[in-house]
Amino acid sequence: MFPDRESVFHLLARYLFHPTNPVWDLITRFHEAYLTGADEKIGLQVRVFDRPGPFQHVLDQILSCTMKENILPQINPKAPRRPALNSSCVWASTRKNKTKVVLITSLSSWYGDKIRDMYLQNPTLTGEVVRVHQPSHEEKQKYEETLHYSKALAEMYLLGMSDRLVTSGCSTFGYVAQGLGGLHSWLMFAPKNRKVPDPPCQRVASMDPCYLLRPADTSKTPLLNYTRSCEDREWGLKLFPAG
């Protein structure tokens, strides 16, 4: 049924997971308002397990990963300021520049605000225009609110519509978004001692989500040739392509 082993979750999720109409309305309205028309859509999923946060080292890791991997463009803080122009001139001078739109999902608004301000206050070295949008910032997980989970599901689907995706390690939210979109994300490893890991992220070899707690005994599993430890969790288990 699944010649491409890593696509099992992707195909099953597409067949079996169907958002309700209110959730799909959230997805389509946000996509049409903020993501449509960009030359490239970048998904950035930020999950921080430490408390209280937010943390500067997490922001540093995000920027180190996205710029090292050429996902987001470098800024040029020393570029000369342009003289003021009328509105028609501004439009004429910027409309040919390529646009990257960044969709950030996080419980905190701080990371998105910092990245948005960075690109508002500084031009990019490549001349690209970077727009940053965040659908929600709930600040904490609200376990008993249906709307909270509706927003979460909508954001997973939106992340899955990205051209390139960056996710946080050991986060089911990021795993599902990656699987829904059939994407090989750049995975940000969990920081230790609140320091940026080296390397800050790694391109995953498989789109399959990580099963965080592997079965007690996998020695007799027929699929063992297609399973390995997860990139971000040694005792986790996931499917990989043959070979």
Rank of each mutant, 00 (worst) to 15 (best):
N76C: 04
K140G: 05
G160F: 01
V58C: 06
G43V: 07
F30H: 09
M188W: 03
W235M: 13
V132Y: 08
K41Q: 15
S93A: 01
I115M: 10
S64V: 13
H148P: 02
L63W: 00
H184I: 11
G169Y: 08
K238D: 09
R203M: 10
L237R: 13
K195I: 05
Q74T: 00
D208H: 13
Q141N: 12
T221H: 14
P73W: 04
N21Q: 11
L224S: 14
G236T: 11
L125F: 01
N70D: 06
Y175Q: 10
S206W: 04
Y211F: 13
Q74F: 03
M156V: 11
W24M: 09
Y226H: 04
K192Q: 15
Q134L: 04
E155R: 03
G181K: 00
D208R: 05
A84T: 05
L158H: 02
P215I: 13
S168A: 13
F9G: 08
V129I: 09
N21T: 06
R214V: 09
L85W: 00
Q61P: 04
L158S: 04
D39K: 04
F2T: 02
N122Y: 05
P209L: 03
Y143V: 13
D60Q: 12
G127I: 03
V23L: 00
Y175S: 10
A84N: 07
D163F: 07
M207H: 01
D198N: 14
T227M: 15
R203H: 02
P135S: 01
P22K: 01
R82C: 02
C89Q: 07
T227V: 14
H184D: 09
D217Y: 09
P199E: 02
R228E: 10
K238C: 15
D232N: 02
E6G: 01
S171R: 10
W186K: 10
R214E: 11
S206T: 15
L63E: 05
L125M: 02
V102W: 01
P80G: 15
R47G: 10
S206Q: 05
L59T: 13
T126V: 00
H10Y: 08
R116T: 08
T172Q: 07
M161C: 15
D113R: 10
T99C: 01
L35A: 05
F173M: 11
N21H: 04
P73N: 00
H10A: 15
G127S: 12
Q121H: 12
R228M: 09
A79H: 05
D50G: 04
P197Q: 07
G53W: 07
L224V: 08
R95M: 02
F9A: 13
T66W: 02
F49N: 13
Q56S: 14
L180R: 01
P222Q: 11
G236P: 14
T146C: 08
F2L: 03
T20V: 03
Y143T: 14
R203A: 05
Y119S: 06
